[in-house]
Amino acid sequence: MEKFEIPQESNATLNGQRKVMYGINESGKFERVNYASSAEEFATQTAIEEFEQLCRESLERIQQEISSPIEYFMYKNRMDLPTLSSVVGMFSFRVKRHLKMKHFKKLNDKILQKYAEALNIDINELKDFTQ
């Protein structure tokens, strides 16, 4: 039987949990074994860091009055434009406009409330956004 290795490294993103995969035991039978892969850890962390960087870049753009706080909270919730659009139930071209500060300033409370719910925050966090 072809042998293969079960990675037994560490993976901090699982926070102490252990996942299983199929491996071959001594008698040549398949069984489930615990594993931890550092490649998986690195990939997950990269994805998280990417969102953190997007957040930081968004904050800079908010300071320059280019982007709106919606954009910041979108990245903070690990969402992208299509995901946010479907959560608030609006067309993505419309949501895209709302990510710009000049369109954001004209939004009424009803629409802001929708965003606040989708982004799991209070409406005031959008209205009086401070970093």
Binding site: I6, M21, A43, T46, A47
Partner: peptide, 17 residues
């Protein structure tokens, strides 16, 4: 991002290699 995305789809969502 692209390379780690492939790995994530394979490992995180695809269970161990």
């Amino acid at each position: 991002n692209f390379l780690t995305h492939i790995v994530r789809m394979q490992e995180e969502i695809g269970t161990g290699g």
